[in-house]
Simulated assay, not measured.
Amino acid sequence: MAKTVDEAFSIFIDRLIPSATERSKAASHRQAIYDKLDNRFGLYRMFESGSFKHGTGISGKSDVDYFVSLKTTRPTYASSTLTAVRDALKERFPSTYIHTSRPAVVLEFGQGYERVEIIPAYADLSTDDGMRFDIAGVATEWMESTPEAHLKYVNACNDKAGVKGGAKQLARLAKAWKYYRNVPISSFYLEMRAAQHMATQFSVIYPLDFCYFLNSLNRHLLADMNDPTGNTGRIKACSSEANYIDARSKLATAVARANKAVELSKAGRASEAFAQWDLVFDGRFPAYY
């Protein structure tokens, strides 16, 4: 429970941070996965990426993500690699639910409570910020990814004077909304947009910044964004037209509720503001007292 909206956001963000136990359980499968894929395909390297690595994960929702740089020749279709990696991992973990979810192969250990995403990748080009890889795209194509460069960008925005910690916490709030409201939008897109938002700010007040962030997404109609690192192509918000329509609708609802919450706070109607934020986060927001 909290007395003010600012205090509630602070409590809420703390609740969203995954525990060390969550991460260690999922990471415990790393060596077995590495050994199987190295034996089948040969690996140059396997390294962690994604929400846990970036410090933007959500308790109970985020996966441990690994890029695996394969030594085999890249096939024409990315689906071929995803299928081959999935089948190899099924041999190693026959009782685990394993499926593809582009650009990854997902292993759901412990009935889905310990999720690991494996992203098959082919090294393409060495940049000043790290290697560029080809990974599975939305359909059958390959797309470019520079995970190390993107992490450096997020860290730089997050460490900016006046908003230190803001980029990652804003991304965490955005992902909480995505997961709790089942919004079919890319977590990577939200993280890059959140970092980009904080890169232009000189202070951070989470209720206001999250409201402004949602409004910005809505004004831009969830448009594809240029890679802020300049290393890859456009970053898509959604994987299909149907998901885009659904995400736009849920975003518009969140914007209306967030705007109302901010206006109610300004009017001194705290309990009503809390109720609106609780709707944004589907009943997970701290209670007012």
Rank of each mutant, 00 (worst) to 15 (best):
A136L: 05
F285L: 10
A252V: 06
K71F: 02
R219A: 14
A8N: 10
K160G: 00
D65N: 08
C238F: 04
E91T: 12
K25Y: 02
R172I: 03
V64F: 04
Y153L: 04
K168H: 07
Y180D: 10
R23Q: 12
R193I: 02
E144A: 14
T81L: 07
S49P: 01
M198V: 11
M198H: 13
E263L: 08
A156Q: 09
E22I: 07
Y34N: 09
A88W: 00
G233T: 00
G230P: 02
G110C: 01
F274A: 12
S216V: 01
T21Y: 00
G57S: 12
P207R: 03
K160F: 02
A174L: 08
T232Y: 11
H99A: 14
S79D: 15
E241R: 12
L279I: 05
H220I: 13
E7Y: 08
K175H: 04
A256W: 13
F285I: 08
I58R: 03
T229A: 06
D209I: 03
A258I: 11
D124S: 09
Y189T: 03
R193M: 10
A84T: 02
S95M: 11
F210V: 05
R193L: 04
N155W: 05
F93W: 04
G110H: 07
Y189P: 07
K36E: 12
P286G: 03
T127H: 12
K160R: 13
S271E: 14
D134A: 12
